[in-house]
Design a binder for these strands. Structure first.
Lengths: 148, 148
DNA sequence: TATTGTTATACTCTATAACTATA
DNA sequence: TATAGTTATAGAGTATAACAATA
C-alpha cells in the first residue's frame, strides 16, 4: 500500500522490530517495577489509570484486553485498598461503574512521575528530537492499536 | 545534564511518555497474542527467543527479570513440548544450559514474522522514516535498559 | 432472549524460603 | 561456605463455563 511490494523485507524494518521488542520489554519492566513500589501489579496500575472517569466493568475488560471475569478480582483488590470504588449505574442497574478515589488518582500520578528508566531515556534526547520521535510514534499508533 | 534544568517539565516529554505507555502496551499485546497462536505465553516466547545459543538457567532468570525458581517451570513446559532441551555443563556440573530445538527455533521465527499489528504499524512509515526512528530509539536504549 | 457482573475451576507466572548437589 | 538448580507454598492474572439479576 505504501510502497511496491518488497520481495526481501527491509533490513531496517527487521532490526527496528527487534529494537521495538527490546525497548518495549524494558519499558514494560520499568512500568511494572514502578507500580510494584506502590504495591500494585502492572495490571492493577493499568486499570487504575483508566478510571479517572467512571468506566463499567465490561469496558475495563475490553481496555485491558482480558476476559470480564478477571476484572472482578482486580477491582476487588484495588477497592479493598481504597484506590477505586464501584458505583451502580442508575440507567442500567446491571452495570457497575468503577472510578478512582482521590488516593487512587494520586497513586496514578506518582507512578507516572516515578518511571525512572523511561524518564532517563527521554532525557537523553533534545526537545527537537522528542518532537520528531513523537510524530513518528503517532504514525505507528493506528496500525498498532487496531486489534481484532 | 543535557539541558539547563527545566522547572516545568516539557509538555512534549509528558505526552511522549503517555504515547510510549500506550504503544508499549499495544505492542506487548500483539506479542502476547501472536505467541498465544502458537500455544505459548509471552514469557515462554521471550525465553525461547533467548536460547538460540545455550544459556544457563541462572542467566535466563536475569534476562527475564524474574526469580531463578520460576525458570524451572517455564523450561519444564517448553521442554515437555519439545521446543527446548536442558544440557548439563561439562565444566561445572551444577549448571544446566538450555537451548532451543529445531522446532523451537522455527517457532521463534514464526512468532517474529506473525506480529501483524507491529508489521502493519511499521509499514505505515517510509524507509527513511524507519531509519530516523531506529536512530532515535537506539538513543533511548541505554537509559531504558540500565536496570538496578 | 441477550447482557452485566459474578462465581467456580484450572493453569501459568511470580516471589520467598528451604532443600540438593556441586564447587 | 557459596552457588546452581529444584521444590514447596501462597498470591495474582488468565480463560472457560455456569449462574443470578436485569434489560
Amino acid at each position: 500500500m505504501t510502497a511496491p511490494t518488497d520481495p526481501a523485507p527491509s533490513a531496517v524494518k527487521s532490526r527496528l522490530l527487534d529494537l521495538m521488542v527490546a525497548l518495549g520489554t524494558a519499558h514494560w519492566q520499568d512500568y511494572a517495577a514502578t507500580a510494584a513500589q506502590h504495591g500494585l501489579t502492572s495490571v492493577q496500575a493499568r486499570l487504575l489509570a483508566q478510571v479517572t472517569a467512571p468506566v463499567p466493568m465490561r469496558g475495563l475488560a475490553e481496555q485491558l484486553g482480558c476476559d470480564a471475569s478477571n476484572v472482578t478480582g482486580i477491582v476487588d483488590r484495588l477497592q479493598a485498598r481504597g484506590l477505586v470504588v464501584r458505583e451502580s449505574d442508575e440507567r442500567d442497574r446491571r452495570v457497575k461503574n468503577v472510578v478512582a478515589t482521590d488516593e487512587g488518582l494520586a497513586t496514578i500520578q506518582r507512578i507516572r512521575a516515578e518511571m525512572q528508566a523511561t524518564h532517563t531515556a527521554l532525557d537523553a534526547l533534545t526537545e527537537d528530537e522528542r518532537v520528531t520521535l513523537y510524530a513518528l510514534l503517532e504514525r505507528l499508533r493506528p496500525g498498532l492499536e487496531n486489534r481484532d
